[in-house]
Design a binder for these strands. Structure first.
Lengths: 318, 318
DNA sequence: CCTGTCTAATTTAACGTTTCACTATTTAAT
DNA sequence: ATTAAATAGTGAAACGTTAAATTAGACAGG
């Protein structure tokens, strides 16, 4: 038994002859090691739990792909769990660590997981606990760039369509926007801020209400791309041209934003890097017991037609 | 030890008093059962392996969601694996069964998995093996409806943009289309068939070549929505109106198809039902040892603007 | 009072690996 | 020639559960 184990794991001292013999017999018998027994003994499962609010959103697919691609070659697999409540039978079994990209999961739950000695990586907010790393986009800087860009192309009356006020992302994005206004000498209290969730419908609704209440708005920064797409639709339906009358910029850089007409300007968060960083950080914590740390992911301004600056000759196609 | 086990699993005869006592101590000690040990003993993991070619596609997110939602309340979790090669360390550990929606995984591999007594559900082709169920869309009928619809709205010169020729989906869709042409008395050999893969770029390319080679084509059936979207883009870029000059219909009913302009007519495959059927079938095989069976999922014609029939007064918005 | 049934709790043997400790053999060093 | 070190292989305990078999009482029927 021991010899077989050593052969299969390339450990210990075994002659080339017996190694061959073991391998042959294993092959002939169709032997497959039991993951359960192995996990029991080694206290490793080779699984990573990923907690999302859902699979269908435009970002989650790309992130899952990045996580999987980073983790698979290292011998791990992904247990994906979508949940809108924090309470279910989370981790508790079969995983070596967890990646959380789900604001429905409370700090309390994370505390429980990490205090059971599971390393955790959180991707959408900042949590300070010993076994928890955070890999977050630089929302503040990104937001700053978005507002600055609208100002740079000469927009004077900018409105914000913000997201879920409880979310960490939202408050960071708000902070960055404020900073840009401040630097431009604009009193933040004069900026129309329409609250909403992060969905396309809310974007439609929010833009409609802006058009009614603030007739001179000529630039809108939406705190994510989905709302921005809704906002563009609403503006065009109301007979406004984008970016002619109103320039619109979003945040995240979801794929569909590049397809619509006018193509959406946005702040890019590179999903591949984000996922890879989160994954490798977690694996490092699992394998080497590294402590939690904070990693910030840079963001990048992507200028497309929805904020094309007529002055500098971007053409507004159609 | 046994008593604790019985309490935790609601089995055997235990007095209310000791049950309480056990539960209390467990709570106080923060006791968490070991999934590995439990799996070792019960030979169940509570995990289901899902094999996709990738996470990012427009269908996979919805399917994953449906699978997860169906399976989670039954006490299972999903191990998702995206792979473009068949050979990697597949199942082999930690799963009670597998769901395959990935043409990269060969019949040989499936044979191996099922012969190791893992039940398998295949979602994109038909495989006849004892432990394998197939849950497939009615591609043939759907395809038939698509062509029939183009004929019904008066299109005389229909072209096909087909997908990957090796795929089961493709051959079924081809068969259905042929049947519709046959019934209408059209010689299939006169129908332009452009080959390609299932991607948007190929759709662009295929439509461009159709416009060059077959000037009188007034209707195109693309074997999936992504190609159809590419085809519409290509047609419009070439100055054709859709559906005025060329009606276009796709297959699958991906979300984005309903957003584009003109909105894409298509054959709907309900992702929710598809996923739920696959999931419940697999769980039934796992729990009750049910044998493999074949389930066909109905498809449905969805008429939108890209095939709006001017005769019957559908308006082509702009 | 004996026997049988029922409930409650306990003992014990797995489940299939890994790994420490050990033996036996060979090779090297003095 | 003796000892030490390296190489190959084996035995057995342990990982944390479950479940079959067993024990110990309590209660009922004859």
């Amino acid at each position: 038994m021991a010899t077989v184990s050593y052969v299969l794991n390339d450990k210990g001292n075994i002659s080339e002859e017996t190694r061959k013999r073991v391998l042959d017999v294993a092959e002939r018998l169709g032997y497959r090691p039991s993951g359960a027994a192995r996990s029991l003994k080694t206290r490793k499962t080779g699984n990573i739990g990923v907690y999302l609010p859902g699979f269908a959103g435009p970002v989650f697919g790309e992130i899952l792909q990045a996580l999987h691609d980073a983790v698979f070659p290292l011998g791990f697999e992904i247990i994906a769990c979508s949940t809108q409540q924090s309470d279910r039978l989370l981790v508790e079994r079969h995983v070596d660590g967890a990646i959380i990209l789900n604001s429905f999961i409370t700090d309390d739950t994370i505390e429980q997981i990490q205090s059971a000695d599971y390393p955790v990586v959180v991707m959408e907010r900042i949590v300070k606990m010993p076994h928890v790393s955070c890999v977050v986009a630089d929302n503040c800087k990104g937001s700053y760039m978005a507002v600055k860009h609208l100002l740079d192309i000469g927009r004077k009356n900018i409105a914000l369509i913000v997201g879920n006020p409880e979310s960490h992302e939202n408050s960071q994005r708000l902070e960055g926007a404020k900073k840009a206004f401040q630097e431009a000498g604009i009193d933040i209290s004069t900026v129309p801020i329409v609250h909403g969730a992060f969905s396309e419908e809310i974007g439609v609704y929010a833009m409609t209400s802006i058009l009614q209440s603030y007739k001179d708005v000529d630039g809108v920064f939406c705190f994510n791309d989905e709302m921005a797409i809704g906002a563009i639709k609403a503006a065009m339906r109301a007979g406004k041209s984008v970016p002619g009358d109103i320039a619109v910029i979003g945040f995240d850089d979801i794929y569909i934003g590049s397809c619509i007409n006018p193509a959406l300007s946005t702040i890019r968060v590179d999903k591949w890097s984000w996922g890879h960083l989160a994954a490798t950080t977690l694996v490092d914590m699992i394998n080497n017991g590294s402590p939690g740390r904070l990693i910030t992911l840079p963001t990048k301004l992507i200028v497309r037609q929805s904020t094309a600056d007529p002055v500098f000759g971007y053409s507004n196609n159609k």
